[in-house]
């Protein structure tokens, strides 16, 4: 349902576009750490579909805390009355140039939404909430900070925990096969490409500019590498018997990604249709 609502919103934006102005905003994401692949994780398999996840590794940000008391909802909004229980783990993101905010994802009816908390006076208690909307592209660590702030009725203590134990998502690489096809009267070579990105509800969100492709010609094996990971392909792509082997998983690494968001503004009233 959430995906449908999102699709509807995109559709409406597209309809409104011809009469609209566009504002493009770029921010750098907070650093995301890709953790090493556990030794027991599978490292080879058959390529069974066009888009095949071949590596899935844990990702966190580089700071995490746990709250020592429950957080009640600021303003007692009906939508977010649940708050967070004591012990909830929050991931750290940069706030401004020299401070941190600590965020968690709230499950919502239409879409999951982020709420971030700040210790504005540095006394060791989170005192301000900053609702931050839905995650950009669905990746919880990708936040376009919003400006609204609400003071918490009761400041809440927090303690640092190892960043690796903070809230985690999955990052990894996906293999995409492109079969041989006729183009301008000639058959093209079958190709394979490897892209780095994040998994959101089992959908892959590629990071732009982080991919590599190879033509599957000759006998193979063929090797693809991205961000320190190396994948070997072997077999026959035309007979549907291609295998992959993880030669090297993604080494533990840190990345800040450039997030570019285009907002379409218009003075024309655009009705929002929600599919049911």
């Amino acid at each position: 349902m959430k995906r449908m609502a999102t699709a509807t919103a995109f559709a409406c934006a597209a309809i409104a576009a011809p009469a609209a102005a566009q504002i493009t905003t770029s921010v750098s994401s907070t650093p995301v750490i890709i953790h090493a692949l556990p030794a027991e994780a599978p490292r080879e398999g058959l390529v069974e579909r066009r888009d095949q996840p071949v590596l899935r590794q844990r990702a966190t940000t580089n700071r995490a805390v746990a709250i020592t008391a429950p957080i009640a909802t600021p303003g007692r909004s009906g939508r977010q009355h649940a708050g967070f229980p004591a012990g909830e783990r929050l991931f750290g993101v940069y706030e401004g140039v020299d401070r941190w905010a600590y965020c968690a994802l709230r499950e919502g009816f239409w879409a999951d939404r982020l709420t971030c908390y700040l210790d504005t006076d540095g006394d060791g208690f989170l005192d301000t909430a900053k609702p931050s909307g839905t995650p950009f592209l669905g990746v919880p660590f990708f936040i376009f900070t919003q400006d609204e702030r609400r003071t918490l009725d009761t400041p809440v203590g927090f303690e640092a925990i190892p960043y690796a134990e903070g809230p985690a998502i999955d990052a990894g690489v996906q293999l995409t096969l492109q079969e041989s096809r006729r183009r301008r009267g000639e058959m093209t070579e079958p190709r394979a490409s490897l892209a780095f990105g994040f998994y959101v509800n089992d959908s892959f969100v590629p990071v732009r500019g982080q991919s590599q492709a190879v033509a599957l010609t000759g006998e193979g094996p063929w090797t693809l590498a991205i961000n320190g990971a190396e994948i070997e392909l072997s077999g026959s792509p035309t007979r549907g018997a291609l295998r992959y082997r993880v030669v090297t998983p993604l080494p533990s690494q840190i990345q800040r990604m450039e997030l570019t968001r285009t907002i379409t503004t218009t003075t024309t009233y655009v009705p929002i249709y929600i599919q049911r």
Binding site: S28, P31, I33, N62, Y94, V97, D98, G228, P251, S252, Q253, I254, Q255, R256
Partner: peptide
């Protein structure tokens, strides 16, 4: 001000290389 790391590989001790 120091803005922190943008990229790099993480060693077991948390040190960054090729960052």
């Amino acid at each position: 001000l120091y803005g922190g790391p943008t990229g790099g590989f993480v060693g077991e001790d948390g040190a960054l290389r090729d960052a």
